Structures are given as structure tokens and as C-alpha cells.
Simulated assay, not measured.
Amino acid sequence: MESNKPGMLLEDVVDLRQLAVALIDISSDVRRKSHEDAGVPLLPNGMVDIMRVIEAHPGITVAEVAARLNRQFSNISTQLRELVARGLVTRVRDTADKRYVTLHPTAESERIRTLLETMWADTLGTAADKLRPEEREQISASLPALQRLATLIGEPD
């Protein structure tokens, strides 16, 4: 079945529930297995999500992080306090308006992100080595579409 026919929707060619479950399972297992081997303090997934948003959007505000993650402002603030205490995020007050605070990743945050992304890739690579060559090619070919899908899903509503 071709997915590029006019009027054809993704759900016509892919079981979206199965895709969603597979992506969640992969994400959860990759994060769990990678943290076991990374040698970095274990951060709850919610904090990792916050760090990833801040790293992708330096200078973002707390309200913008909450909107991007579809979480309560107060919950984001609580987790941010811990990330600041761990030296992973800095808060920068606007010189003109002291109420306006932007968030920025630290060098330590970037070091941990690089380490974790490397571990994630290693975990995926170990599993991918067990796939057939054509399966690895299918995954490789789908990467641009998956990256675009992730971007679209990650945009605030």
C-alpha cells in the first residue's frame, strides 16, 4: 500500500497505536538501560525532559517549558529548583525586568546530555545488531520522517 496517494492518511498505512506503543517501549527501555551504564546520577524522566527542552531552546521561560511539556507550571518550577541545585540549569534574570527569568543549560548539563545520547545510541546499536540488514535499512530510511514527527509532536499546542 502506498502512503503518498492523495487523501491517504498515515493511519491508513500504519497502526498508530502499535507505532505509539513501540516508540514508548523503545524510549523507556533505552533510557533505563542507558542510565544503568552511564555513570551519571539517575534523573527522573521528567527532569530529563525539562533539560532537553532547555537545551533545545536556551533562554526559554518556565512558562514556555511547562507549555511545551503540557505540565503544570508549579511542577516544572519544583523540578527546576532541583536541576539548578544540581548545577544542570541556570536561571538568568532580565536586567530591565527582574521578574522575567530565562533558563539556560550548563556545561555539566551538556556533558551529561552528550554522555546519555551516546549511551542511548550504544543501547540501540546493540539491539540493532540483532536485526536483519533490511530491517536496519528500513529504520534508517524512516529516520527523517520520525525526526519531523518528533518536532511536530514537540511543538506547543
Rank of each mutant, 00 (worst) to 15 (best):
L124A: 06
P156F: 08
V84F: 03
S142A: 15
P58V: 04
D49M: 07
G39S: 05
L43I: 05
I76T: 04
I76M: 02
M119T: 04
A56C: 06
E11T: 11
S74L: 14
E117A: 06
S28K: 13
L131Q: 05
Q79K: 15
L69K: 02
Q72W: 01
I50D: 00
D122F: 06
S77Y: 12
N45D: 11
Q147E: 11
H57T: 09
T114E: 12
K98V: 15
V92C: 01
E117L: 10
N45L: 11
S140L: 12
A128N: 07
R148C: 08
H57Y: 13
R81M: 09
T123L: 02
E135H: 15
E137T: 13
D157T: 10
L19F: 13
L152V: 10
R81G: 03
D25E: 14
L115S: 05
L152E: 15
V48N: 07
A20Y: 15
P144F: 07
E117S: 08
D129T: 11
L103V: 05
L43C: 00
S109E: 00
E135P: 00
L103I: 05
E82S: 11
D49W: 02
V84Y: 02
I26R: 10
I60Y: 00
V53T: 04
L10E: 00
E2A: 09
I76C: 01
L69S: 01
E110W: 07
S27K: 07
D37F: 09
S34R: 04
K5R: 15
L43G: 00
E134V: 10
D12V: 03
T78I: 12
V21M: 05
I153S: 03
E135I: 07
S27T: 10
L42A: 11
T102K: 02
P44Y: 09
L131W: 13
V14Y: 04
A67P: 00
S27M: 08
S34N: 01
R99E: 10
N70G: 09
I60W: 01
R113E: 09
E110Q: 15
S27F: 09
L19I: 08
D49Q: 14
R17V: 12
P105I: 08
V89E: 01
D37H: 14
G154M: 07
F73V: 13
T61F: 00
N4A: 11
R99S: 14
V65T: 03
V48W: 08
A107H: 06
A128G: 04
I60E: 00
A127Y: 06
S74D: 10
A56V: 00
R68L: 02
L10P: 00
